[in-house]
């Protein structure tokens, strides 16, 4: 068992988002909501601007008709190595774990929303209401994921339940985890394969292959958040010359 502890610590999960492949199709958005028991976003919730989407597709307009472009940018919790949300939590409900995940512990959270306020990526969502599902829709709730109650912050977990399940399954079968065994719901759904997830400490993993990519950038790199989500820039022949943000 001691061996297992060491193994855990050597893993570091990262995600690569190839913006050039993203079509904005929303498959990841819904896959995430299905997997993680995210409360249903009703029309009024959208109108109040309190919709919860752990992963979202941001769309930017560039220019005006007829020379107009739409840009898509998937944004999820960046699992910062140096996370601004962590030090502000008065009850240690959010912390950094040994696999590089920024963890939100729902049963510790008291809902101060300080972390939401401090997150530069706006990927933390607050449960303003008790989540309700019509009785029969409760059947599809994922038993691996806690249903968050009112007054609790929530955010993307890199599908930690899948990571744990993957680790347990490997343990159960007495084998090593291999690249691709664990995939968060968004990456598994993504029809263009724009999202790639894996262990960066494994030099043969697919994510490691992107480490030297020329298109690589981080969101709001200037903040020094040391994010674990790596973006690969959109390619466009008509791109204006402009420096990195």
């Amino acid at each position: 068992m001691v061996i297992e502890v060491i193994e855990r610590q050597t893993r570091k999960w990262q995600m690569v988002v190839d913006v050039d492949k993203c079509t904005g199709c929303q498959a990841c958005v819904i896959a995430c909501q299905v997997e993680n028991n995210v409360a249903l976003n009703s029309d009024e919730i959208f109108r109040q601007r309190r919709a919860t989407e752990w992963i979202r597709i941001e769309r930017y307009w560039e220019g005006e008709f007829p020379n107009v472009k739409a840009r898509f940018l998937p944004v999820l919790c960046q699992q910062c190595g140096n996370a601004p949300c962590e030090p502000v939590c008065p009850v240690f409900a959010t912390y950094h774990n040994d696999q590089g995940l920024n963890v939100q512990v729902y049963n510790r959270c008291v809902g101060t929303r300080y972390c939401q306020n401090n997150c530069p990526y706006h990927v933390r969502f607050f449960n303003f209401w008790e989540p309700v599902w019509p009785e029969s829709l409760r059947n599809h709730l994922n038993p691996d994921v806690t249903v968050r109650s009112r007054g609790v912050m929530e955010k993307c977990t890199f599908c930690v339940q899948r990571i744990r399940r993957g680790e347990l399954d490997a343990d159960r079968e007495g084998r090593q985890l291999k690249d691709g065994d664990i995939q968060p719901a968004c990456a598994q759904a993504c029809p263009t394969d724009a999202l790639v997830f894996g262990d960066i400490s494994d030099s043969n993993s697919r994510v490691s292959g992107f480490a030297e990519n020329k298109r690589k950038f981080h969101l709001r790199e200037e903040l020094g958040t040391d994010t674990n989500v790596i973006y690969l820039a959109k390619v466009d022949a008509e791109a204006k010359d402009r420096s990195h943000a």
Partner: peptide
């Protein structure tokens, strides 16, 4: 009637023109 849309639920990550785009 307010249009229920996701845009505006959270502030955008990049202002227009700051989005990193590279040439092929």
């Amino acid at each position: 009637i307010r249009l229920p849309k996701f845009e505006g639920v959270v502030p955008p990550q990049y202002e227009e023109g700051l989005f990193p785009i590279v040439k092929p």
